[in-house]
Amino acid sequence: MKKIMNQEENVMEETLQGFIDAYAADYERVDGVNGVIYRHMDPDKVSVITGGGAGHEPLFVGFAGKGLASGAAMGNVFAAPNPDTILEVTKAVENKAGVLYIYGNYAGDVLNFDMASELAEMEDIETRTVKVSDDVASASKENKEERRGIAGDVFVIKAAGAAADAGLSLDEVTRIAAKANENTHSIGVGISPGTSPGKKAPMFELPDNQIEFGLGIHGEKGIRRAEMMSADDLADEMLDHLLADAALESGDEAVILLNGLGSTTLMELLIVNQKVHKELLAKGITVYDTDVNSYCTTQEMGGFSITILKLDEELKTYYDAPAHSPYYHK
């Protein structure tokens, strides 16, 4: 696979440097580690920190910003950040009102953030954690806390960032973030694998005519393999899984995110979106807002995910609050 890069070992460093060079007015690098912070923070407010493995751009760095996270702690490509990185970012953000960690639910991220949290407590910084677990294909509904986090990170960070911006306490911001996670459900479909920078082989094998429902963003096994099908049929099968799981009913309001995984085009995403809207309308579900974008990617992986955030009045307030980063606007 051709990839525009230099040495493999410099991929993370050069990605972060490129980001800082582009947006230095609003972001700065945390000394000595792969972390960035948003410059314009309020010392009296709670800080949200996100993070995870690199390679999913614009997540996670691109979700630091106004009304979003205050900082991002980055690991190497598809590997959780180390505790030192998370701790240094925690110390670099405004932390007097406490810090909420929000990240996708993966073993490596949990181990490293938990350790960072212990280290932060030793420095008298209060922390809380909300693990995003929106992927309905990764575990049963009864085991929601075992589910992986995929594009749903966006809605949870959005809600928490807005709650922090509104001046809520650490416990309240945590409650809002946890509620957003409870109300966020996603499912993905993979049609072609991506390649990790510097690696010759693709991240997983998927025959050319095959697709996988529920495929994870690192190639984790999904629900079933199938022959390639039309956009309408894809949307139908994905919505069947999602609506059952999210307990969405006629009269409910929801926000939809169609997230491309890297090489899937906006045209393809829009074609899926027309079917998603048609089906939701037929079921009496009000689409409050729609976002068609590629926020949570896996290099040139082909496919997309559909994320549904079920709204109530409280979540609507925080969803509507202004937010801004170079890659996200509200």
């Binding site: 493995g53 690991g75 190497n76 590997a79 959780a80 950040p81 180390n82 505790p83 030192d84 990185t85 073993a107 490596g108 181990l111 490293n112 350790m115």
Partner: peptide
């Protein structure tokens, strides 16, 4: 190792 590696294996 913990400080430098990241991932689950760094902690383990």
């Amino acid at each position: 190792m913990m400080k430098s590696m990241g991932g689950a294996s760094g902690i383990i």
